Computed example of a mutant assay.
Amino acid sequence: MAGTVDKAALKAGGLMPQVQQGKYSLRVMTIGGNMTAEQIATISKVAQKYGHGYVHMTSRQGIEIPFIDVEDVDVVKAELLEGGVPTGVCGPRVRTVTACQGKEVCPNGLINTYEIAEEFHKRYFGRELPHKFKFGVTGCRANCLKTEENDFGVKGGMEVKVDNEKCKKCGVCVKTCRWNAITLDKATGISFDQSKCVNCGRCVKACPFDAWSGEAGYVVSLGGLFGNEIYKGESFLPLIKDKDTLFRVADAAITFFAENAKPSERFRFTIQRTGEENFRKVIFDAYKGVEKSEEKNG
């Protein structure tokens, strides 16, 4: 049997070979770490029937069902799909999009993380590439998803401002700011040093008098890597304030990787090999909305 198995095809369909001959761990599809109770019940049933009665929770919010016989793969996939559970992917393609719970659940959240993760999933999940490519979305500066570990990370941020006419000089914002960007003079009111601000939005959430306000956006990091070699993804761009720009930048990043990477080369190494300045220009042009045709004409 082993000689007739197309392992690459199985891997593309979310099946990874185990050390046990003929046994595979089947990865199911998740988006942003969310699953319905019905989906979980389906996975439990399949694990009991075809596996060893347990599942493995991966480090990237995935669920894998170990000990699936290669002969049972088709029927297992069919039963999962009948219960609303598509299978995931492995190999050189866009992987599961991870996300924290974001502002819909978490008091610290600044953005709707699941909404962004779902859009990334619809646009990119499973896309064939020279190597794997990972998206991660986190709601705030607390960075529960460690976005800088991803090829493309998104973190909630907020551009803030203060209205001294509304300020009651209570000093709550000064105590809340961990980066000493805010000072208070009882006579003149609040002073805000924009250069020290990290866009965390804590002052807006803490102010009891609505003197602070802010516009939420997206802090993007690119080229993160956490494996045999470790690199922290870099933020090449200012705070992105709209989804159209966010997805335009994501399109540019993944297209750059698809067009420039060598087989089995991770995104970070493609950036380094082709020249970071070249990549910065591509990304910044996408941020500004500059089309390639415009570059040629202008």
Rank of each mutant, 00 (worst) to 15 (best):
I63N: 04
V162E: 12
G84M: 02
K232M: 07
G136N: 13
K132A: 00
E128S: 12
A261D: 09
F247Q: 01
R202N: 14
V174K: 15
V70D: 13
I111V: 15
K241W: 02
T4P: 00
I182F: 14
D185M: 09
Q18I: 08
Y24H: 10
V220L: 09
P17G: 13
R123H: 12
L26D: 06
L110C: 06
A261M: 07
M35N: 12
E265S: 02
A9S: 14
G224F: 03
V55F: 10
W212D: 03
V162R: 12
L145H: 00
G224T: 07
P130Q: 05
V89C: 01
V249K: 14
N108G: 15
V282I: 06
M35R: 14
G136E: 08
T245C: 03
V73C: 04
N278K: 05
G298W: 06
G62N: 13
G227N: 10
Q21T: 10
S59Y: 04
G136S: 15
Y24E: 06
V160N: 01
E234V: 09
V198H: 13
H121A: 12
I111D: 12
C100K: 13
V162I: 15
F152G: 06
F269R: 14
K161Q: 09
E259I: 01
D163H: 09
E276L: 04
D74I: 01
M29C: 13
